[in-house]
């Protein structure tokens, strides 16, 4: 099949970007979206033009590196029958002759580095603020020292499947990072190991989130709709609940 791509090209963070149109020929429907971009890049390289920069690594939907907005939805969720990362979206989801818009995550907290590549280090800084259990190597008790309620363990797991790709921020009309933050909050809040720091953690992580310039959550739900790991919106409910109860605790005062 043949595809027309309109791709965001931007030389670096300071420069202005624009959409550039390319034709990609002989696309197989078994290709992943990124393999189609590889094909475009091989073609551009041979012509002596600079290939389109895009982030990608594992190409099996788990590392969270890849992510572009395709036809207006993060990871091309609007074109995919199931939740997906960009690398797991396949060209069979498009028809021959399709015109496809490809843009980077757009959010003030994710500045563009080049073309489709953005800087997501704000997420790391949110984790640095408290997204961990303070346990030094070697100081752990036996793994069976704490039994964990199965329902809570499962909920912790559902939240812990977050791959930190940033689709939630890209899709959110407010560009809020709340689903990402809440996924980590919920993961650790459901486990006994996460309890001692629970009150302090949420205060620190939410304020780090706000300091990074992410927008506020207005419970719209676009984040959960594009999340490749289907992190449910209710983790944000958990975050809010914990945040309110933390206001009545002395942690961090």
């Amino acid at each position: 099949m043949n595809i027309t791509l309109r791709v965001w090209r931007q030389a670096n963070a300071q420069s202005e970007g624009r959409m550039v149109t390319y034709q990609v020929r002989d696309v197989s429907e078994d290709m992943s979206f990124l393999e189609m971009l590889d094909l475009l890049n091989e073609d551009l390289t041979i012509k002596g033009e600079e290939p389109v920069a895009f982030d990608h690594d594992c190409r099996e939907g788990i590392c969270g590196t890849c992510g572009v907005v395709i036809n207006g939805t993060a990871h091309g969720r609007g074109n995919s029958p199931v939740a997906t990362t960009t690398c797991q979206l396949h060209m069979r989801s498009f028809s021959d002759g399709a015109v496809i818009d490809v843009e980077p995550w757009r959010a003030g907290s994710f500045p563009v580095i080049k073309d489709l590549v953005v800087n997501r280090s704000a997420f790391d800084r949110i984790i640095q603020a408290g997204g961990y259990v303070s346990v030094n190597t070697g100081s752990a008790p036996d793994a069976h020292a704490n039994a964990v309620n199965k329902r809570k363990a499962d909920r912790a797991f559902d939240a812990a499947t977050c791959i930190g790709c940033g689709a939630c921020v890209a899709a959110c009309p407010n560009h809020s990072g709340m689903l990402f933050t809440a996924a980590k909050i919920t993961h650790l809040a459901m486990l006994p190991q996460g309890q001692p720091e629970r009150g302090l953690r949420i205060k620190k992580m939410v304020s780090a989130h706000d300091e990074e310039g992410f927008g506020g959550c207005t419970n719209i739900g676009e984040c959960a709709a594009v999340c490749p790991k289907e992190i449910p919106l209710d983790v944000i409910g958990q975050l809010n609940r914990d945040l309110i109860s933390s206001l009545f605790s002395r942690d961090g005062k």
Binding site: T73, R106, A107, G215, G221
Partner: peptide, 28 residues
């Protein structure tokens, strides 16, 4: 207004194409 301003500050440029998947008309 505060939320609106934060959202504006968090939005450097608009998408050329954007499609909502979950957002309701009321929310928008």
């Amino acid at each position: 207004v505060t939320l609106w301003m934060r959202a504006k500050a968090a939005t450097p440029s608009a998408y050329k194409a954007r499609k909502a998947l979950a957002q309701t008309y009321s929310a928008r």
